[in-house]
Amino acid sequence: MDIKRRQFLKIAGLSTIAGLGAPAAFNLLLKGGPDTVSYASSGGEAEASHEAAPTGVRLGMVIDQRVFDANKGLAQKCTTACHTVHNVPNFGNKKDEIKWIFEVPFEKAFTGKSQYHKNKNLEDSSFLVLCNHCDNPPCVRACPTKATFKRKDGIVAMDYHRCIGCRFCMAACPYGMRSFNWRDPRPFIDQKTHNKEFPTRMRGVVEKCNFCVDRLARGQQPACVEACGNTGAMTFGDLNDSHSEIVKLLDNNFTIQRKPSLGTNPSVFYIV
């Protein structure tokens, strides 16, 4: 826990200085070869990523499905943690539904991956899906008001006060990770667990996972990662920092991303 904590403070610090633009050469040295990151930064850049130093901080997440498979119920804990911390309402019906992180079977999370004989492990496995904080996010490109924007640390964040509720971003997100407040969400937030430190939303705006941007600023881990305790089920960190735990995980394991062929460069990786 200690190491993780220290790393987090580092990330939080880095997030603030990333904007100052660390020399690109220095960053190139830190980087481990021609991976998806360098490809991403040379590819079509989305609106807000123009100013971002191509090799600055890029926050990301690794989800170790082996751990989730071994710990049934853990994924549910993550969902509850996130939805409680962020005052995500529970309408109890599918039509109004708002969700930031949720479980789906393999074939929904990873569409287009066919298997003749389905791997036994996958049969009753369910995968947590959340916003991928794409390095090349179509939702940011689509948004007509910059209410959805990409920060210099790679987080795709939202300004609920600017959003006009056109839902263009929902059509644009190829992962189905955005929710809309079809009606006033406030009466559907459990008052017992209401988190006064996080804003509630008004009706008519879009929302989604924000990589716990405000918790990071306070040196905390994302709520879902914290809910995993020290199981190692979820690891959060800077994908461009070769010393970070997350980069070690990526170096030593075969990971997959959701719909990589679309060129969005998701920052969430899965060890299956």
């Binding site: 989305a46 609106e47 008001t145 910059k146 600017r162 959003c163 006009i164 056109c166 809309f180 009706r203």
Partner: peptide, 24 residues
């Protein structure tokens, strides 16, 4: 378009924060 907006009173944000990357 106005009928479809979740926050119609903010419609002018499209002009106040012009975003040439957005087709809308």
């Amino acid at each position: 378009i106005m009928a479809d907006l979740g926050q119609p009173t903010r419609a002018l944000n499209v002009l106040l924060h012009p975003t040439p990357g957005s087709i809308l």
